[in-house]
């Protein structure tokens, strides 16, 4: 069954410990930033930012809310980016954990196409075309540790474990959250490994919080990619000699 996360945004205080812990563990540099009229910074994910707490202020049915959305790769159970890449040495799923992983070989693949295929707009490209995103802290998880973001969360908003347990936990958190937020819901729980619990409509948090209807399931483009994959791979192998 592999692993999953639960991110209960109703418990998130926007402290951004996860954002820093992620950079620290992956030894990523700080992006140069300026204040753009919001506490959120950096403004977007990047090749060197895998985790970002997005912040939005909305007047809801419960009054003014400051909504925090600790964004990261959802590690799709059937990842469109992996299907689009069609190259297991570049993008593959680790069967033990379910983590969708990118390698340096992504540099040789059409980056825009892979980014476009992500329903959550997650992968980011380096100037040389290499793609990067959250790696579920594979090295930590393989050694029995929690992902850095989960480990550092001080409010219990983030949990990580066996998928079955996390889905159960998500449902019990949802029951609790519904007492306070009548529109509370889980986002795309059946298709991804990073399950968000939101108190309000997903689009209030972030445009890509939830996969749009058009992007659920395998698109025609991806189906074609999949069909031609064996030929492409054989061709690539011939080229390499």
């Amino acid at each position: 069954m592999a692993k999953s996360f639960l991110i209960d945004t109703t418990l998130c205080t926007g402290c951004r410990g996860c954002q820093v812990a992620c950079k620290q563990w992956h030894n990523l540099p700080a992006d140069p930033t300026v204040n753009m009229g919001s506490y959120q910074n950096p403004q977007d994910l990047s090749f060197t930012t895998y985790k970002l707490v997005r912040m939005q202020e909305h007047v809801t049915e419960d009054g003014l809310k400051w909504l925090f959305f600790p964004e990261q790769c959802r590690h799709c159970i059937d990842a469109p980016c992996e299907a689009t890449a069609g190259e297991p040495t570049a993008v593959f799923t680790n069967p033990r954990t379910g983590a969708v992983l990118y390698t340096a070989i992504t540099k040789d693949l059409p980056a825009e196409e892979i980014i476009e295929s992500c329903p959550y707009n997650i992968p980011r490209m380096a100037p040389d075309g290499t793609l990067a995103k959250c790696d579920m802290c594979q090295d930590r998880v393989d050694n029995g540790m929690l992902p850095a973001c989960v480990k550092t969360c001080p409010t219990g908003a983030m949990s990580f474990g066996e998928r079955e347990e996390i889905v159960e936990m998500a449902n019990s958190h949802l029951m609790m959250a519904r007492k306070k937020f009548k529109n509370a819901n889980l986002i795309d729980v059946d298709t991804i490994r990073v399950i968000y619990l939101v108190g309000f409509k997903p689009e209030l948090y972030h445009g890509f919080a939830m996969a749009s209807n058009a992007e659920i399931g395998i698109t025609r483009h991806m189906a074609l990619q999949r069909m031609f994959r064996p030929f492409k791979r054989a061709g690539a192998q011939l080229m390499r000699g």
Binding site: R16, Q19, K23, A30, D31, P42
Partner: peptide, 12 residues
């Protein structure tokens, strides 16, 4: 600390 300045870079 670069990570802290990255998140709150300026007087507001």
């Amino acid at each position: 600390q670069p990570y802290l300045l990255e998140m709150q870079p300026q007087m507001f």
